[in-house]
């Protein structure tokens, strides 16, 4: 067992984990931050995406022990303290960028990373950046639209609702 400590959504946390404990398990089970989801076991669906030291990472493909000392941000840390949604989260709601909600936390975390790297992405850049996030409900139309809208671009010309 390994003692680990990290900062999660701005709060210092610590725990004791096995070598084989994945970061996503530590978040979901030890910290009860269940917004980070597990949708596959081959590191492809992206439902588990979180930020580690400022960049997006698949929490199902990183050992908790390897995240010792890291600064981690999850979907639970994306809204303001008073519950106000971030502009990106709000864009997902405004443009119906989610249905069942299961892939949504990973989509939001990936999209946030994109907009940090590339504040005004093109449609093609958005679609390419979502390569590691699978959604089965939306057909991506409204996810892409929401991300473009969150970047401040006019999406009124994109086929409507």
């Amino acid at each position: 067992m390994t003692e680990i400590q990290m900062t999660v959504n701005g709060k210092a946390v610590r725990g004791t984990v096995e070598g084989r404990t994945l970061l996503v398990n530590f978040l979901r089970e030890d910290l009860r931050l269940t917004g980070t989801h597990v949708g596959c076991d081959t590191s492809q669906c992206g439902a588990c995406t979180v930020h580690v030291n400022g960049v997006s990472v698949k929490a199902c493909t990183m050992l908790a022990a390897d995240a010792d000392g890291a600064d981690v941000r999850t979907i639970e840390g994306m809204a303001a303290a008073d519950g106000t949604l971030s502009a990106l989260q709000q864009a997902f709601q405004d443009h119906h960028g989610l249905q069942c909600g299961f892939c949504t936390p990973g989509m939001v975390m990936t999209a946030a990373a994109l907009l940090k790297e590339n504040p005004k992405p093109t449609e093609a850049e958005v679609r390419h950046y979502l390569e590691g996030n699978i959604c089965r409900c939306t057909g991506y139309h409204n996810i892409v639209k929401a991300i473009l809208a969150a970047s401040g671009q006019d999406v009124s010309a994109i086929a409507a609702e």
Partner: peptide, 9 residues
Amino acid sequence: IGDPAVRNR
């Protein structure tokens, strides 16, 4: 390679 999250690790 892979996707953005994979490229970060």
